[in-house]
């Protein structure tokens, strides 16, 4: 026994250290994924008997307009949420200077990320309020018709994304600020000697060094876009008539909300959401694998 341990210590130690992590990951992530897959084949209200229905939940999804609305909104979220990355970079570059009190400015810009998403949602609901909201007071001041952003099916998703961009920009900003600290001053110096400045300096010298920050910013932004939920729940509750739902919210509504409790159908939506996420996850894993091997 003792000699076995001695002989294989090198091979066993990593697994022993990994064991708690693997256990938690399996119990809270991997196993639930397979449970979702299996529940999505049943009709179940979460309380009574499960009834096996095969692929009926997926067939129904194919014909469900609310599902397509959510899917479309998810795509809009994914695309527009990316704006947080350049916006964050811009703010970070702007704040990356040494003047008196810069720390206060930095904290102020970071503030929206610190406060709860629920508060962000409330603030923006008031901002958009058709009667007393700042937005409409502003629009009226320049002679435009007021827009009830959160009650209009065409505007509502964009309105919520704008609210989401506020904290997300702050998040990307902090990532870039940290990245900018690590930019090699000698390279900047050398580029200066070669007469690089402005956008060229940014594009060819600074940005390549910020690549790790950009990578992380993209990951957190994509994840943030796919799990956008709290803002929708607070600002519109998925309305008006379901036009601001995304898949995550629709899943919650079908499975857990007041009028839902269709666990199987909710699980089917979750599986579709997982499939979409898998595209990104695979791409990232592939990229990380290549980076590790130094390709």
């Amino acid at each position: 026994m003792r000699s076995y341990w001695k002989q294989n210590q090198q091979r066993l130690a990593p697994w022993l250290f990994l064991a708690p992590g693997i256990f938690m990951f399996a119990v809270y992530v991997i196993i639930p994924i397979f449970q979702s897959l299996s529940i999505s084949l049943y009709a179940w209200d979460g309380l009574g008997e499960k009834e096996y229905v095969g692929l009926a939940n997926y067939v129904e999804l194919m014909d469900d307009r609310a599902f397509y609305t959510s899917l479309k909104n998810n795509v809009i979220w994914l695309v527009l949420y990316m704006l947080a990355i350049p916006a964050g970079l811009f703010v970070a570059l702007f704040l990356n200077q040494t003047v008196r009190g810069i720390r206060i400015y930095k904290s102020l810009f970071f503030f929206p990320f610190v406060i709860s998403q629920v508060v962000v949602g409330l603030v923006f609901s008031w901002f958009y309020d058709p009667n007393f909201g700042l937005l409409n007071i502003g629009l009226q001041a320049i002679g435009l018709e007021p827009i009830a952003v959160l009650a209009d099916e065409n505007w509502v998703t964009y309105g919520i994304i704008a609210a989401g961009l506020w904290p997300q920009t702050a998040y990307c900003m902090i990532l870039y600020l940290t990245g900018l600290n690590a930019v090699d001053p000698e390279q900047i110096e050398a580029a200066r000697l070669d007469k690089a400045k402005g956008l060229k300096m940014l594009w060819y010298v600074v940005l390549p060094q910020l690549k790790p920050a950009t990578f992380i910013a993209m990951v957190v932004t994509i994840i943030g876009a796919l799990r956008s939920f709290d803002l929708i729940s607070i600002m519109t509750d998925g309305g008006p008539y379901g036009s601001s739902r995304v898949l995550a919210f629709y899943m919650y509504e079908q499975a857990f909300s007041e009028y839902g409790f269709r666990m199987g159908y909710g699980a089917a939506i979750a599986v579709v959401l997982l499939a979409i996420m898998m595209i990104y996850i695979t791409a990232f894993l592939y990229k990380m694998y290549r980076d590790e091997r130094g390709l």
Partner: peptide, 17 residues
């Protein structure tokens, strides 16, 4: 029942707009 109620009331809201 809950599911009918939800769909119904959402329909009424849409109808009013």
């Amino acid at each position: 029942p809950a599911e009918m109620a939800k769909a119904g009331m959402e329909g009424f809201q849409e109808f009013m707009v």
